[in-house]
Amino acid sequence: MSIDASRIGAAIGRAAGAVQTLEQELNQADAKLGDGDTGSMLARVVGAMAQSGAADATDVSDAFGKLARAGMSATGSSLGTLISGAFLSLSKQTKGRATVDWSDLSRLLAIVLDGMIARGGASLGDKTVLDSVHALVLALADVSDGAQAATAARVSANDALHRYRDLPCRMGRAKFFGDKSVGLDDPGMLACAKLVDAVAGAETEFANITT
């Protein structure tokens, strides 16, 4: 079973449900390194994406495009803009395709990552959401179905969060904290791990039930 528009719509719906409970946790993580609004910003952005009608899109490209446009209207924050840009890249890459195979995800995300690096100006290793996406690119390289992809994604996003926790932030507002950021999670990486967990957790269960 591959990825189609209704599956993308269901996934963003799960993310929107999860972000409500994550909002204050992410705000608190951000308060240590920024101004404490990452959770509220993401709740607004993911909520808008969930209302964008992605499930009813004509194909995957259209579904990703709806998510991108909803996100872009909801915020101009750096993290939110990077996420919207990622969906725009996915939309462009999947033009005309009704479905995407699980085995394509890594290659698609690699191009998304290149775009995020070019747009945001951060490098790999700066302790940002880019390092989470990079971990996903590597982990998803050899998957062939949804259950494998879900497990690989959850493990790798969580693993990236842990690996970077004790390194200093080198990008965005958090870079001004220098070594004081050691031991603190980057709010974008934390959000990525938690949202992947929410989206992929159900995906694993779904795969288990149907196979």
Binding site: D37, M41, M72, S73, T75, G76, S77, G80, T81
Partner: peptide, 15 residues
Amino acid sequence: CSVGNVFEGPNVDSC
């Protein structure tokens, strides 16, 4: 002037 939300950049449409 494009106007974002509080302490967030302005969105691309407003720019």
